[in-house]
């Protein structure tokens, strides 16, 4: 579903500020595979997601989505394939617009936008049903401006907006990190439910190793722009936080790519 081949990205290449964010990363996700991504700050996790989304273009390598080469497509032309939720709860919604307006915008993902009414009665009924599934009472507040919602409510709404139009790929970048623990727990649960329900191929960055192990079917660890651990299935089920920390210490010492660290 998602295929990255030898993707590299360097910021400010050729200057004193040069930063290699990704080095020769290859990654292939099967349909409906739910992959969690961990790694220390600056490991290149956000850059990886930005490259998939098209917010950044790679220096080299190719990116394919569902067989189509999207390497050079800008973000808005990839949007039909990709749903995103960002760390900042402000980032995923238009805060001066109402809940129903935001949902209408999201529902038209990747389709041409013409002169039909944005919010219709039929859509409203659909929005109410979808919002009810969040169990936050938002279904009674369709005309509330999103800026008035709490961070957790906004993130739950962003998640709904990213998923209910069933994109091929869902990208989550520490989308629970800015929330208090109980809200983070709620959004995490909603995430699992949405991924399950829509069979979304998902890349989820998290700083929480426990969460990375608990959720999803595959786990990758990044370090200095490379994927250094990649486990799935049984092996991921068995892995513990201690294993991950051990692997991380080994990578730090070795400083090179070793995908067999957990074996």
């Amino acid at each position: 579903m998602l295929d990255l081949t030898s993707v590299s990205k360097t910021f400010f290449a050729g200057t004193v500020n040069e930063r290699r964010a990704l080095t020769d990363v290859s990654l292939s996700l099967a349909p409906a595979e739910f992959t969690t991504v961990i790694g220390s700050n600056g490991a290149g996790k956000s850059t990886l997601l930005n490259l998939v989304a098209g917010a950044l273009l790679p220096d080299s390598g190719t990116i394919g989505i569902d067989g189509a080469d999207v390497t050079r497509l800008p973000d808005h032309r990839r949007a039909a394939y990709i749903g995103r939720v960002f760390q900042d709860p402000m980032a995923g919604t238009a805060t001066t617009m109402t809940i129903e307006e935001n949902l209408s915008i999201a529902l038209a993902r990747g389709r041409g936008r013409g002169l039909r009414m944005g919010v219709t009665r039929a859509k409203r009924a659909f929005f109410e049903a979808e919002l009810a599934s969040l169990e936050l009472g938002l279904e009674r507040r369709l005309k509330t401006v999103v800026g008035l919602l709490s961070g957790g409510q906004r993130q739950a709404l962003s998640l709904l907006m990213a998923t209910f139009s069933e994109p091929k790929i869902l990208l989550l970048d520490e989308h629970t990190a800015a929330l208090d623990p109980s809200r983070a727990e709620l959004v995490t649960r909603l995430t699992s439910e949405a991924v399950e329900r829509h069979h979304l191929t998902t890349l989820m960055v998290t700083h929480n190793m426990d969460q990375a192990l608990r959720l999803g079917t595959r786990l990758i660890m990044m370090h200095e722009g490379r994927i250094v651990v990649d486990v799935a299935g049984e092996q991921k089920q068995r892995a513990t936080v201690a294993d991950l920390l051990g692997a991380f210490e080994k990578v730090k010492g070795a400083g090179f790519d070793d995908r067999t660290l957990l074996q």
Binding site: A55, T95, R109
Partner: peptide, 27 residues
Amino acid sequence: FLNTDLGLAVQATGDNQGMIRSFGVST
């Protein structure tokens, strides 16, 4: 106009460009 699909996209452009681009609109 501002309440059509296209108009909502124009409104969102003034509010949050990253968001509206992520839903497939050329800002």
